[in-house]
Design a protein around this nucleic acid. Structure first.
Length: 878
RNA sequence: GGACGUUUAGCUCAGUUGGUAGAGCAUUCGCUUGACGUGCGAAGGGUCAGCGGUUCGAGUCCGUUAACGUCCACCA
C-alpha cells in the first residue's frame, strides 16, 4: 500500500524522523573513499555563548547545500562541524553569572573558574549543535571538534612555538587596546569605532622661561597627567623658536620639552599637540622617535593611579571633570568647544577602549602577510564575489603586529615559562622541567591566554589532526570552500590564510564564499538590543526547516545583505506544499507495483517536451551550483516545478490518466515518476526533508535520495522540435484563456474551438489540451473554416482560432481590438526589421542572435498576415 | 579623507560572457477545474537614479553626479 499523504505538507511529521534516519544510516560520515575526488568544508565554528541566529542559519544552509550537492555528485564529501570557545565572550558571560552569586574570578581561582567554563561549554555547546541538526545540516558529527579540545590545543602550542622559534612571535612593551571592563588587551580588529559627541578643551601650557604660552586643544584632558612633551610640525614657522624650549605642564608642574615632529598637522587646531605616549597610539610613536618617557596614569580599570593623589582612584571621566575644573582654576583653560569625534569601543562590551602601554605577546605580521596576499593574487584562493578581495588586501597591506595575549583564563594558555632564577623565557610545546637558559627549576607559566582567533586561525587543519600527519589531514586538506559573512574577513579568513600558508605550506581552501547579513523586514541589523532578532528555530517550528532554507537560499546574491520577512517564508512554505501535492497526485495514480523511475518508449509530444525541459533544468541547476550561484539554481527549480511541471505537464497528464488506453497510462505515469523523482534530486540540497520524504514514497531504487546519484544532463533528452510544437500550442491556449477572461466568460461555459493553422499536425496533437486547459467543448483543426464570421477570433503567430459565441461579439470593438493588436505587431516588426536591415548588426552580432531575429520576423509576419485577413473579413461584414 | 556596495513594477528583490526586463508579495477581475484556496486562470503596473561615453545594440561595460548604506583611516 502506498502511503496516504496528508492534504497539506506537515514538516513536523517528517523532519526529526528523517534526520534520525540519516544519522542511523551514517550518511554524513566521510569515509576517505579511494579514487574519489574530495570535497571538504570546515564549519565556521559558532561561539558556545549563544544560540543559533539567522546569520548562522544562512551560513549553514549555504554550506549544507554545497555539501549535499557534492555528495550526490560523487565526491567523497566531508563537512567538519565544531564550536569555538570564544574566550572573551564566554568568560564575560560566566563572570556575569558569577556576579549574581556575589563571586569574582579571583575569589574562585583559576582552576575552579575553568571547571565552570567547561560546564558551560557542555551545556551551551551542545545546544547549538542540536540547533544545527534542526536545520538539516549534514555534518560529520563523528568529527565534531572544539577549539579548546586536546587536538586543537596541541596545534595551538605547535604553532605558537614554531612562530616563536622563527622569531615571528615576540613579547614586548607596546601600546595596545585595553578594555577596562573586560580587563584584557584586544586586537585592532576587535575595536569598533563610533562617532561620539565630545568636547575640545583648549589649554595653554606656559614656557618655563616665562616667555608666554603655547595653546593647544585636547579631547582627553585627563591624560594631561601623563604628558611628556608638546609637539609642533618642524615646518611650522609660527613655532620655530619654541622647539627645544621647555614648558611647565599645568597642574602637575612637570617640565616637558617642545619637540618637532611631522605627525603634527599644521592646519588643524593651533598646530600644537600634547604628547601622552602612554595613552595614545600616535603619541606613543612620537615618544619613540624622541625618546620621551612613558608615564602611565591609569589603572587596569581606567582609574587614576596613586601617583596623582589629587585624582587617585577617580575613573577617567570623573577625573576629566576634576582636572578641567582645576585647569580652569589655574587659568590654563582657554575655552571649551563642542566636538564630535570617533571613539574606539570594545566589540564585546562596548566600553570605550583605553590605549595603553603594556607588555604583551605579538605576532609579527609583515612576513606572514606577504604570502597571504600573493596566494589570492595568483588565484590559489579566490573570493566569491571577487570584490571582497579588496577588503582582504586592504587589511593585509596595512596590517600591524597582532596582539595575541589576553588577560583571561578561558582559552589556550600561553606556552611560555618565566624563570625565577635568571628571568629568561622558556617557550615549549610541553611543560618544561627546567629553564632552557640556566637550568633553574623555578619556572612559572605565563598567566595569559591567547586571542580566541589564534586557535580559529588554525581551524581548517587543526580539526583534521594537524600537526600529526593523520589520514584525514592527508586526505581532506586543503579544504575546498569556506562559507562566511563579509564581516569576518579580517578576523578570521585572513588569519586562516596566513596561518595555513605558514604552517602547512598550502592555502587552507580554494574558495571563500562570502554572504551578507540577514536583516529584519525593515532592513535593520538583527540585534539583541533592538530585540528584532528572528529565531530560526521558531521559524522552523512554524514553517519547517525546508521553508526556512529555501527562503534563505532564494533571491540572495553572494555578498549582499538580505531582508527576512514572514511573507517570504510563507511563499517558501507554499512552495513546499505545492511539491507535496504534486507528489500526492502522482502517488494517487500509481499502482503498488510501479517500476522504478525510467523513461518509457512511446513518448507523446508533451512527454518529450517535459523531458527536454527537465534536461535543461538539470543542466542549469548544476551549472549554477558549480558557479556558487545558489540563488539562481533555486529560482530555476521553483519556476520549473511550479510553472512548467505542475501548471502544464500535470494538467495535461490528467488527460491520459483518465483515458482508456492502458499503454498511455503506463507511459504518462512513468514520465511523471521520472521527472518528479529526478527533480526532487535537484532540489534535495535546498530542501532535504520534503524531498527525502516524497522520494521514499515514490518508486525508487537505493536507500535514500541524499546518497542517490546527481542528475546529469543527457543529450538523448533534448527534443527541440517538440519544445517548439508545445510552445505553439501553449501560446494558443494562453491566448484563448486570455480572450475568454477579457470577455468575462466563466470557465464552466464550454465552447467549441476552431483552429485555422498551417501547423495542423502540431495542433492535432494538442487538441485535447484545449479541452482540458482552455474550456473547449470540442476542437477542430483545419486549414480554413467557413461560416464563422460571427465567431470570436483569436490570433497567434501560429493560428487563428474561432470560438462561436456570436452573442459576445461586438464588431466595432473587435475591429478596434484587432487594429490595436496589429499596431503592436507592426511596431515590433519594424524594430526587428530595423535590426536586420542594419548591415552592422547582421555582420557583427553573433549568428545565433541574428537567426533569432529572423525567426522573430517570420513569426511576426505570420501573425500580421492572419490579423490582416481577419480585419478584411470584418470590414466586409460591416 | 579613502574604499566598497545599493539605487530595476506599490513593497522586497533576481537579472554573470552586452541582444530593449522577471519573480514573490500587494492590487484588480474571474473560478466548488477530481493534487493543492498554502490553490487555478487572467489583468494592470517599469523612459532599469540622473548625465555623458564605448558599441550595430547598454539594466548589463567605462566615466561622472546624486541619495542611501557598509567598511577602513583618524586631525590631537
Amino acid at each position: 500500500m502506498r502511503k496516504e499523504l496528508e492534504k497539506q505538507y506537515n514538516p513536523k511529521n517528517v523532519e526529526d524522523r528523517t534526520y534520525q534516519m540519516w544519522l542511523d544510516k551514517n550518511y554524513f560520515h566521510a569515509k576517505r573513499e579511494a579514487g574519489k575526488k574530495t570535497y571538504t568544508i570546515v564549519i565556521p565554528p559558532p561561539n558556545i555563548t549563544g544560540q543559533l541566529h539567522m546569520g548562522h542559519a544562512l551560513d549553514n544552509t549555504l554550506q549544507d547545500i554545497l555539501i549535499r550537492y557534492h555528495r550526490m555528485a560523487g565526491y567523497d564529501t566531508l563537512w567538519v562541524p565544531g564550536t569555538d570557545h570564544a574566550s572573551i565572550a564566554t568568560e564575560a558571560k560566566i563572570v556575569e553569572a558569577m556576579k549574581k552569586e556575589g563571586l569574582t574570578k579571583e575569589q574562585l581561582g583559576r582552576e575552579k573558574f575553568l571547571e565552570r567554563a567547561w560546564a558551560w561549554k557542555k551545556q551551551y555547546g551542545g545546544r547549538i549543535i542540536e540547533q544545527l541538526k534542526k536545520l538539516g545540516s549534514s555534518c560529520d558529527w563523528e568529527r565534531e571538534r572544539f577549539t579548546l579540545d586536546e587536538g586543537c590545543s596541541k596545534a595551538v602550542n605547535e604553532v605558537f612555538c614554531n612562530l616563536y622559534e622563527k622569531g615571528l612571535i615576540y613579547r614586548g612593551e607596546r601600546i595596545i587596546n585595553w578594555c577596562p571592563h573586560c580587563l584584557t588587551s584586544i586586537s585592532d580588529a576587535e575595536v569598533e569605532y563610533e562617532e561620539q559627541a565630545g568636547h575640545f578643551w583648549h589649554l595653554r601650557y606656559p614656557f618655563k622661561d616665562g616667555s608666554g604660552y603655547l595653546e593647544l586643544a585636547t579631547t582627553r584632558p585627563e591624560t594631561l597627567l601623563g604628558d611628556t612633551a608638546v609637539a609642533v610640525n618642524p615646518k611650522d614657522e609660527r613655532y620655530r623658536d619654541a622647539v627645544g624650549k621647555t614648558l611647565i605642564l599645568p597642574l602637575v608642574h612637570r617640565e616637558i620639552p617642545v619637540v618637532a615632529d611631522d605627525y603634527v598637522e599644521m592646519d588643524f587646531g593651533t598646530g600644537v599637540v600634547k604628547i601622552t605616549p602612554a595613552h595614545d597610539p600616535n603619541d606613543f610613536e612620537v615618544g619613540l622617535r624622541h625618546n620621551l618617557p612613558v608615564i602611565n596614569v591609569l589603572t587596569d580599570d581606567a582609574k587614576i593611579t596613586d601617583d596623582y593623589p589629587a585624582y587617585a582612584g577617580m575613573d577617567r571621566y570623573e577625573a576629566r571633570k576634576a582636572i578641567v575644573r582645576d585647569l580652569e582654576a589655574e587659568g590654563a583653560l582657554v575655552e571649551i568647544e563642542d566636538y564630535s569625534h570617533n571613539v574606539g569601543t570594545c566589540y564585546r562590551c562596548g566600553t570605550t577602549v583605553e590605549p595603553r602601554v603594556s607588555k604583551q605577546w605579538f605576532v609579527k605580521m609583515k612576513p606572514l602577510a606577504g604570502p597571504a596576499i600573493d596566494a589570492v593574487k595568483n588565484g590559489d584562493t579566490k573570493f566569491v564575489p571577487q570584490r571582497f578581495e579588496k577588503v582582504y588586501f586592504h587589511w593585509l597591506e596595512n596590517i600591524r603586529d597582532w596582539c595575541i595575549s589576553r588577560q583571561l583564563w578561558w582559552g589556550h594558555r600561553i606556552p611560555a615559562w618565566y624563570c625565577a632564577d635568571c628571568g629568561e623565557i622558556t617557550v615549549s610545546r610541553t611543560a618544561p622541567a627546567a629553564c632552557a637558559h640556566c637550568g633553574g627549576t623555578h619556572l612559572e607559566q605565563d598567566s595569559d591566554t591567547l586571542d580566541t582567533w589564534f586557535s580559529s586561525a588554525l581551524w581548517p587543519f587543526s580539526t583534521l589532526g594537524w600537526p600529526e600527519q593523520t589520514e584525514d589531514y592527508k586526505h581532506y586538506y586543503p579544504t575546498n570552500t569556506l562559507v562566511t559573512g563579509y564581516d569576518i574577513i579580517p578576523f578570521w579568513v585572513m588569519r586562516m590564510m596566513f596561518s595555513g600558508l605558514e604552517q602547512t605550506g598550502r592555502v587552507p581552501f580554494d574558495t571563500v564564499l562570502i554572504h551578507g547579513l540577514v536583516r529584519d523586514a525593515q532592513g535593520r541589523k538583527m540585534s539583541k538590543s533592538l530585540g528584532n532578532g528572528i529565531d530560526p528555530l521558531e521559524v522552523i517550528d512554524q514553517y519547517g526547516a525546508d521553508a526556512l532554507r529555501f527562503t534563505l537560499a532564494t533571491g540572495n546574491s553572494p555578498g549582499n545583505d538580505m531582508r527576512f520577512s514572514d511573507t517570504r517564508v510563507e511563499a517558501s512554505r507554499n512552495f513546499a506544499n505545492k511539491i507535496w501535492n504534486a507528489a500526492r497526485f502522482i502517488l494517487m495514480n500509481l499502482s503498488d507495483d510501479e517500476p522504478a523511475p525510467h523513461i518509457p518508449e512511446d513518448l507523446a509530444l508533451e512527454d518529450k517536451w517535459i523531458l527536454s525541459r527537465f534536461n535543461t533544468l538539470a543542466e542549469g541547476v548544476t551549472d549554477a551550483l558549480e558557479k556558487y550561484e545558489l540563488g539562481m539554481a533555486v529560482q530555476k527549480l521553483y519556476d520549473f516545478i511550479w510553472d512548467v511541471f505542475c501548471d502544464w505537464y500535470i494538467e495535461i497528464a490528467k488527460i491520459r490518466l483518465n483515458g482508456s488506453s492502458e499503454a498511455a497510462k503506463q507511459t504518462v505515469k512513468a514520465v511523471l515518476v521520472y521527472v518528479m523523482s529526478n527533480t526532487l534530486k535537484l532540489l534535495h540540497p535546498f530542501m532535504p526533508f520534503i524531498t527525502e520524504e516524497i522520494w521514499q514514497a515514490l518508486p525508487h531504487t537505493g536507500e535514500s535520495i541524499m546518497i542517490s546519484e546527481w542528475v546529469k544532463a543527457d543529450d538523448a533528452l533534448r527534443f527541440s522540435a517538440e519544445e517548439e510544437e508545445m510552445e505553439r500550442i501553449m501560446t494558443a491556449i494562453k491566448a484563448v484563456r486570455n480572450r475568454r477572461a477579457e470577455m468575462n466568460v466563466a470557465p464552466s461555459k464550454k465552447a467549441k474551438v476552431f483552429i485555422e493553422t498551417a501547423y495542423a499536425d502540431t495542433f492535432a496533437k494538442g487538441k485535447v489540451f484545449f479541452e482540458r486547459l482552455a474550456s473547449a467543448s470540442e476542437v477542430e483543426v483545419g486549414a480554413k473554416f467557413d461560416g464563422l464570421d460571427d465567431a470570436v477570433s483569436i490570433i497567434t503567430e501560429s493560428a487563428r482560432m474561432y470560438i462561436p459565441m456570436a452573442e459576445l461579439v461586438d464588431f466595432q470593438a473587435e475591429i478596434a481590438r484587432l487594429q490595436k493588436e496589429k499596431a503592436g505587431v507592426q511596431k515590433e516588426l519594424s524594430m526587428v526589421n530595423g535590426k536586420l536591415s542594419n548591415e552592422n548588426f547582421v555582420a557583427k552580432a553573433p549568428a545565433a542572435v541574428v537567426e533569432g531575429q529572423r525567426q522573430a520576423k517570420a513569426r511576426l509576419e505570420e501573425k500580421l498576415a492572419l490579423l490582416d485577413e481577419s480585419l478584411q473579413n470584418l470590414e466586409k461584414r460591416r
